[in-house]
Amino acid sequence: MAEGNYSVVTEFILAGLTDKPELQVPLFLLFLGVYVLTVVGNLGMITLIGLSSHLHTPMYYLLSSLSFIDLSQSTVIVPKMLVNFVMEKNIISYPECMTQFYFFIFFTIAECHMLSAMAYDRYVAICNPLLYNITMSNQVCLWLVFGVYSMSLIGSIALTTGMLRVLFCKDNIINHYFCDFFPLLELSCSSTFINVVVGMSSSAFNIIFPSLSILSSYIFIIASILHIRSTEGRAKAFSTCSSHVSAVALFFGSLAFMYLQPSSVSSMEQVKVSSVIYTIIVPMLNPLIYSLRNKDVKVALSKLLGNKSF
C-alpha cells in the first residue's frame, strides 16, 4: 500500500503503569520520592567524589561516571512518567518520543559498558595491585570512559535511525510508560524486520559482551582472592567487590529479562515491572549500594560534613 494512503501518527499517548484511578496518586507520590532520592544520591556521589581529593582515583572516577549515567537515565524517563499519574492523557509528540527513545538507549548501553569497565578496574586492583597505578592510569581511565560513550553513541544512533524509518499509522497508544523499542514497533504498519534484527543484535552485544567481560573478571578475582592466606585479607577483597556485584546482578538481570527473550514469552505487565527495575530502581539504589558498603566513601562523607559543621 502506498505511504500516502496512511494517516501518519504525529503524537502518541503513553498508557503508563496502570489504568486504575485509585493507584494514580499513591504511585505518583512513590515515584516522586524515588526520583528525589535518585537525584540527591547521584548528585551527592558526584559532588563528594569531586570534592574529596583522596577519592580522585580511577575507581571513583568510574563510579562518578556511573552516577552521571544513572541520574541522566532516570531524568529521561521519570518526569514524563509522573505526568501520566496526574493527567488524564499523557501525550508525547513524535519528536519528543524519538528524543526520549534515543537518550534512553544511549544511557542504557552506557551503563552496561560502564559496569564492565568497573569490573576490569576491580580485576586490576585485586589481581595486579602492584601495577594498578600503571595499568589504570588517568589516561587509561579516560580511554575507558571514551569507549563506553562511543559504543553508546553508535548503538543509540543505529536504533534511533531505524526507528525513524518506521511508519506509525495504527493506534497511537504506547502500552508503556515511556517510548521503548518493542512497544513502539507494535504500532508500526511498515516492515520492522530490520529493526528487530538490529535491535536483537544490539541487545545481545551490549548485554552479553559486558556480562561475559564482567564474569571473566570475577573468575580471575575469585581465583586471586582464594590465594590470599589471611581471613581479613579475603574479607576485605570480597567487600571491595560486593557492591559492584550487587549493582551488576540487579541491572543485568532485569535488562536480560526484558530484551533477551521473545516478546510472546512475557506479558506487558512483567515487561513494565522489569523496566521499572533498571530504569528507576537501579539508578536510585546504586549510590546507596556504593556508599553504604564503601569505607572510603563513608570517611569522605564524614570529613566533608565535619568540615562544614566546623
Rank of each mutant, 00 (worst) to 15 (best):
Gly147Thr: 07
Ile208Lys: 10
Ile69Thr: 07
Thr75Arg: 00
Leu62Arg: 01
Gly33Thr: 07
Val198Ala: 09
Thr161Glu: 12
Ala117Ile: 04
Ser7Gln: 11
Ile225Phe: 12
Lys170Asn: 08
Tyr177Lys: 09
Leu185Met: 13
Met98Gln: 05
Lys272Glu: 04
Ser201Asp: 06
Arg165Ser: 14
Cys189Ser: 10
Leu250Cys: 13
Gly199Gln: 00
Leu304His: 11
Cys127Arg: 08
Ala110Arg: 02
Val148Pro: 01
His54Lys: 07
Phe238Gly: 09
Leu164Arg: 12
Ala223Cys: 11
Ala117Glu: 06
Gly306Pro: 05
Ser93Trp: 07
Ser201Glu: 01
Gly4Ile: 10
Leu48Val: 03
Phe101Met: 07
His227Ser: 11
Phe310Trp: 14
Ile208Cys: 10
Tyr120Gly: 00
Asn128Phe: 11
Glu3Ala: 12
Val148Glu: 02
Ser217Cys: 13
Leu14Ser: 08
Phe106Cys: 04
Pro262Cys: 06
Ala117Thr: 07
Leu142Pro: 00
Phe205Glu: 03
Pro58Leu: 00
Val276Ala: 08
Ser116Gly: 13
Leu37Cys: 12
Ile46Met: 14
Leu288His: 11
Val299Cys: 05
Pro79Leu: 07
Glu88Ala: 10
Asn172Trp: 02
Cys169Pro: 11
Val148Met: 00
Ile154Arg: 06
Ile92Gly: 12
Gly253Pro: 10
Thr108Val: 10
Met81Gln: 12
Met118Pro: 02
Phe101Leu: 01
Asp19Tyr: 06
Phe205Val: 14
Asn307Lys: 13
Val148His: 02
Arg165Asp: 11
Gly233Asn: 04
Gly233Gln: 05
Cys179Glu: 08
Ala235Leu: 02
Thr57Tyr: 05
Val40Gly: 01
Val166Tyr: 02
Tyr177Met: 12
Ala237Asn: 00
Phe181Tyr: 09
Leu288Ile: 12
Phe146Trp: 14
Ile92Ala: 12
Ser52Pro: 02
Leu37Arg: 02
Lys89Thr: 09
Phe103Asp: 04
Ser246Trp: 10
Ser266Arg: 04
Met258Lys: 14
Ser190Ile: 01
Phe193Ser: 15
Ser116Pro: 06
Lys308Val: 13
Met268Asp: 10
Met136Lys: 05
Leu32Lys: 11
Asn133Asp: 15
Ile91Phe: 10
Phe146Asp: 04
Glu3Pro: 02
Phe12Ala: 05
Pro210Cys: 11
Glu111Trp: 04
Lys303Met: 03
Ile126Pro: 05
Leu144Met: 13
Ile173Asp: 00
Leu66Asn: 01
Asn90Glu: 14
Leu185Ala: 07
Ser217Trp: 03
Ile277Arg: 03
Met59Val: 07
Asp171Glu: 10
Leu215Ser: 15
Ile214Trp: 08
